[in-house]
Amino acid sequence: MTNACHLTVSKALNFAKVAAQRSLSSRSNLPYPSKCTLKQIHMEGNKKCDSRGALIVLEGLDRCGKTSQCSRLISYLEELGHAVESWRFPDRNTGVGQMISSYLANKSHLDDHAIHLLFSANRWEKRSLMESKLRSGTTLIVDRYSFSGVAFSSAKGLDMEWCKAPEAGLLAPDLVVYLDISPEKAAERGGYGGERYEQLEFQKRVAQSYKMLSDATWKIVDATLPIEDVQKQLRQIIMECVLTCQQGKPFVELWQN
């Protein structure tokens, strides 16, 4: 890896660590924060937000079907004439993302705290572009987001509030859809075990972390149903969200007091 790439990664880690420290410090004298503490982004000189795209996130255990369902949703929205893009985290095309990719493929080893901050930095790399795309009217269908980062890292034993801290200030999804499948059922699907986190006992802990993160705003879909049935439910859920955002739903930020 070049010196420039090392410098970029170092800056990313430093940024994420500072963000975590500031967020934890600001909340040190407050009671345990709620699961869905969000802060509305104020629009200068405009009482109502303009029409925009929706930020839709699909979450779930490994092999729950997120990637295939994201692809189907993209095709469906395109057929209806909507501007839409498929995003995925981690984004392995960036400098930080390449380090994450190496780690996930078991080609490198990093401290659990360090890899969590890299995952967070990878999302911050895309934050400005994400908001720009949404403001332009493009809906983003995202395969994993901050909730995955927190769920997987806390499943390793890291403090959940520490894991949330560097994510605070990222755009909050307009919709989170959790594709629900038991760890045992997911393990029966093809290709399971190809990456570092695809281990049954670990996935059980991830499932528990997701339960702690979820709230009444999440939409839960049974991922063990036939693909077509899952897709039908997803279409109904996301179209409501897309229409709401087109009507001027304001942006909010993740985990801000």
Rank of each mutant, 00 (worst) to 15 (best):
A4F: 09
A4R: 15
C5E: 12
K11E: 12
K11V: 04
A12W: 01
A12I: 00
A16D: 08
A20G: 07
Q21I: 06
S23H: 12
L30F: 05
P31I: 07
L38R: 15
H42W: 03
M43L: 15
K48S: 13
D50T: 11
S51N: 10
R63N: 08
R63I: 01
C64H: 03
G65D: 01
L73H: 03
L73K: 04
L80W: 00
V84M: 04
S86R: 14
W87C: 11
R88M: 11
F89M: 12
G97F: 09
M99D: 07
L104M: 13
K107W: 01
A121R: 10
N122R: 11
E131C: 03
K133D: 04
R135V: 14
S136W: 02
S136D: 09
S148Y: 04
S148K: 06
A155K: 06
W162A: 10
L179D: 07
A186V: 01
G190L: 07
G193S: 03
G194F: 01
G194V: 10
E198R: 10
Q203G: 06
V221M: 03
D222N: 14
A223E: 00
T224C: 11
E228K: 09
D229I: 00
Q231G: 05
M239A: 02
V242S: 09
V242W: 12
L243W: 00
T244F: 04
C245M: 05
K249V: 02
F251Y: 15
F251C: 05
L254D: 00
